[in-house]
Amino acid sequence: MTPLLRETASQTAGPYVHIGLAPKAAGFDIFENNFGPVLTTPETQGQRITVEGQVFDGSGTPLRDVLLEIWQANAQGRYAHAGDRQSGKPLDPAFRGWGRACSDFDTGIWSFETIKPGPVAGRQGILMAPHVNLWIVARGINIGLHTRMYFDDEAKANAADPVLNLVEWEVRRKTLIGRREQRGATTVYKFDIRLQGDDETVFFDI
């Protein structure tokens, strides 16, 4: 058998992940260019949205030291990556589709400013409903957690989504759906993540 190297073991991001991955958000001015929670520029195409939530532990307490990253397709449903060769979906030079956010140190609320992604071709060409991929790390999380947020105003697409349908327990699918709220001119999708408990979020082994 061809020998494979073993993947380097994961270790927790620990309590001070912010100084490493988001120093500016941690009040620490060191890099000129900072990666942050705003994925858009004025030139970005698509509907502006805010994705916001909290991450709760098994006692129902919000994590105030969590860090999240999101990765998503552009408004046309195309990822800014050489591996995405879907035809008829132009790249948006003003959208990378990636961001990272820290939770607020008091409230635990985190948020991203982005655009609503378009649908992406799934396996065997079955279209996936619009979704945002999330990755969650913090103290006490030994290996980063992967999940997805879908949109509650895409009921028809969600019903046909091959990944949502992979979740055998229909009651758990709702943990993957962001809820739309209108706040003045801002469209917010609320997406709370529960690490444990009755409504534990679905996490994926990808």
Partner: peptide, 24 residues
């Protein structure tokens, strides 16, 4: 890790473009 670890099994997902792509 006691209160920050999921109790359910991870759901194994055959990879799609969402998992094989990443920011550059």
């Amino acid at each position: 890790s006691a209160l920050r670890s999921p109790r359910n099994s991870l759901i194994s997902l055959s990879q799609t473009l969402s998992e094989v792509t990443a920011p550059t």
